[in-house]
């Protein structure tokens, strides 16, 4: 048992961080924004936290807080100009943002270490802290889903015209979703920084965009559980068997294509829907018999 834990301890940490990124991606999409900014926002959080601690000697909780705030600010600042754009154009603009963050990370090497990496970040955060952070984020996101904000997000996601015809401000809610996405990405970026010893700008580039999107698409875009299940499946599958690990990217690619074509709501949301439909069918056939 303890061997098992040692072997899979690292994987579990990776899973916790991945779930955080997944939730950051999830919350913007929840509000109908097609942003892929999570990777760039995570980079802001990770570098802010790491630099504050390694160069200025800040205690790590303060650095994490600063990273979270940096991510929030980044998300909010993106939201303001992007409010005018729609769909694909939002996606491309946020992709550009991620690329700019990567490029600056590579260029400003006196601050970030550039391509060589920002080294010797103390390992101050373990599974416990990361798990605690994830639990808090999951609680907040569930609260959003269960109350007024969740209803507003859902309306905007499905039909902006309907949402505003009922008094829901699309601009405000999408800016809020952006800021929340930035906060979550910044926090988990910081947590990753304090777990990995070295940060590279490219860690937060195109591959992370794909990963975060995949977690949400595979797991589901509606409930909080979706992205966590998506993260678990995509991270654990390659660990189960060697051949799967060799073809990790092919597997990711295939999963994305199959899920979006045959199960566009993702695994968890589809399962929930299936169960609900069965229950409804059962109750209506019962009524018919009576």
């Amino acid at each position: 048992m303890s061997d098992f834990f040692v072997t899979y301890h690292h994987l579990f940490n990776v899973f916790l961080i991945g779930s955080g990124y997944g939730l950051s991606q999830w919350i913007v999409m929840r509000a109908g924004v097609f942003s892929v900014a999570t990777a760039g926002l995570a980079s802001l959080g990770a570098y802010t936290a790491a630099i504050l601690t390694t160069k200025l000697g800040w205690p790590y909780p303060l650095s994490l807080l600063a990273g979270t705030l940096m991510g929030t600010l980044g998300g909010f600042l993106l939201a303001v100009p992007l409010a005018r754009l729609r769909g694909v154009f939002q996606a491309i603009a946020t992709l550009a943002f991620v690329q700019v963050v990567v490029a600056i990370g590579l260029y400003a090497d006196s601050l970030t270490g550039g391509a060589v990496g920002l080294n010797a970040i103390p390992t101050l955060v373990g599974t416990k802290e990361t798990l605690l952070a994830l639990v808090v984020v999951v609680y907040l996101m569930s609260a959003v889903n269960a109350t007024r904000l969740g209803r507003a997000f859902e309306a905007i996601r499905q039909d902006e015209a309907v949402a505003s015809s009922l008094g829901v401000s699309v601009t405000f809610h999408q800016a809020l979703a952006f800021a929340l996405s930035g906060a979550i990405a910044g926090l988990f970026g910081g947590l990753e920084a304090f777990q990995t010893y070295t940060l590279f700008p490219n860690t937060f580039g195109f591959p992370l965009i794909i990963a975060a999107l995949s977690y949400v698409v595979l797991g589901g875009r509606r409930s909080v559980t979706g992205p966590i299940i998506g993260t678990a499946i995509l991270l654990i599958l390659p660990e189960i068997s060697r051949p799967l690990a060799d073809y990790r990217n092919a597997l990711y690619g295939l999963i994305l294509m199959l899920v979006i074509a045959y199960m566009p709501r993702g695994i968890y949301d589809t399962a929930v829907l299936y169960l609900r439909r069965r229950r409804l069918a059962a109750s209506s056939s019962q009524e018919a018999r009576q």
């Binding site: 097609f34 990217n249 690619g253 295939l254 294509m257 899920v259 979006i260 566009p264």
Partner: peptide
């Protein structure tokens, strides 16, 4: 949701071909 779907599914194709 073709707009979103196409992005995801062609990303998938991209990964598959690259791998």
């Amino acid at each position: 949701e073709a707009e979103f779907g196409a992005i995801i599914s062609t990303l998938g194709a991209d990964l598959f071909i690259m791998s």
